[in-house]
Design a protein around this nucleic acid. Structure first.
Ligand SMILES: [Mn+2]
Ligand SMILES: [Mn+2]
Ligand SMILES: [Mn+2]
Ligand SMILES: [Mn+2]
Lengths: 220, 220
DNA sequence: AAAAAAATTTAGACCAACCTAAAAATTGAT
DNA sequence: ATCAATTTTTAGGTTGGTCTAAATTTTTTT
């Protein structure tokens, strides 16, 4: 029995919401993320439980089973590989690829995914810095810092984003903040908690707290 | 209002069945091609007519409108471009790509198609020799001959296939008949109407009538 | 021109994925 | 511990795309 487009999306979202410790996900949270109503989510949860893809007890929230986890991670693998393709091969900006990948991730051919992966040179990360699961379904989240946790004077490398919204990514483009670039925190401005950040040893600019909260970085 | 996956498939199939002169297509023919029942086809035709995509009068068969033709040709463009991608970039065989392209053809981004087209170098033909419509929707079917219409002694170039079934394409692979290769009809065998054909000035082999009927070629 | 055969449409139903409104269970506050 | 607020589920309905069976129209044969 094949999983539908919609089922795959639910599984992917349950995976995202349950975080790295596989916490229980609530019906309302799913309704929010899927842009549907709680009643519709309940219907779908019954079906996914029926198929053995989630652990579900009424009123108790939901977790992925082994097999649900496998499906979810495979969808994530496809999503991120296609994003790499769109950026690296077709020249899209990192702010343009999410919605297209949201469709491509449901194309159902293992053969296709493996060939795409090798065509792309087995990339480890997608254009937003998110790790790409391997063919066996291993997904290791690197533990990056959030820019707000970095001390004044430290130099860090920009490794990823928490917010994937086009408007956020475009804002980073305008600021010259790209994946891999070096950032140095010069000071934290008392007034609005913004950070003065020097980018690639060149210009220094104000980064709002809102932005800092969404930047993943690594000490070096 | 967007067209669904299913609607696009109907339009594409109506296009294919109505041929180059835009003949009327019957309900039963569509049921056959869509692997559904005539009753289901009738339902869908009412909907497509509602949306202005087809000309449909009860019991009278169906033709595409201008706007239906545009949609159909765009789906065909996407199908064939993705097939080129799968063969040229991912290394699939020409016998493996149809089903995957059948899914990819419904990914709805004009931006994506145009970038894919230029990534592929604006190919004119797909891996089966079928012409790829341009971005404006112009589709010109080259007028090839069928191998059965070629006289003994003539040399022709192999330009395409009528049957796209994997088993047929694999049979051609085993025979060494590839797109662009030169074929010379040595004789027609009385017994089974098979043709003795010399391939690329090398080995000569028997080509059954069944196969000959499905090979498109060009005089040279 | 009638009857028979074939093609097509209508009627009535099903399933997936959604909805609203109402009922039930859980959580949290006093 | 009770009551109120919140969350979740159930009940009943809609839409898209499909089905079977029956009715209707068209085509073919006699
Ligand atoms: Mn994405
Ligand atoms: Mn991404
Ligand atoms: Mn298709
Ligand atoms: Mn093709």
């Amino acid at each position: 029995m094949q999983n539908s487009f919609t089922e795959e999306n639910y599984l992917k979202i349950i995976h995202a919401l349950s975080g790295r410790d596989g916490l229980e996900v609530s019906t309302n949270a799913l309704a929010e993320s899927t842009s549907t109503r709680a009643a519709s989510v309940t219907d779908m949860l019954r079906k996914l439980a029926e198929k053995g893809l989630i652990h579900y007890k009424k009123y108790q929230g939901v977790r992925l089973t082994e097999s649900g986890e496998k499906v979810a991670i495979n969808v994530i693998r496809k999503h991120r590989l296609w994003e790499v393709f769109l950026v690296e091969k077709l020249g899209f900006g990192w702010d343009e690829v999410h919605d297209i990948a949201e469709e491509l991730e449901h194309i159902p051919s293992d053969h296709l995914v493996e060939r795409l992966d090798s065509f792309l040179g087995h990339p480890r990360f997608d254009p937003h810095g998110d790790p790409i699961p391997d063919a066996k379904g291993n997904l290791t989240e690197p533990d990056y810092l959030i820019l707000t946790d970095v001390e004044i004077g430290e130099k860090v490398r920009m490794m990823g984003v928490l917010d994937h919204a086009p408007s956020f990514l475009q804002h980073l483009d305008r600021a010259g903040i790209t994946l891999g670039c070096i950032l140095e925190i010069k000071e934290i401005n008392e007034y609005d908690k913004s950070a003065s950040v020097q980018i690639e040893d060149k210009q220094t600019l104000f980064i709002s707290l809102e932005v800092s909260k969404n930047l993943l970085v690594q000490r070096r």
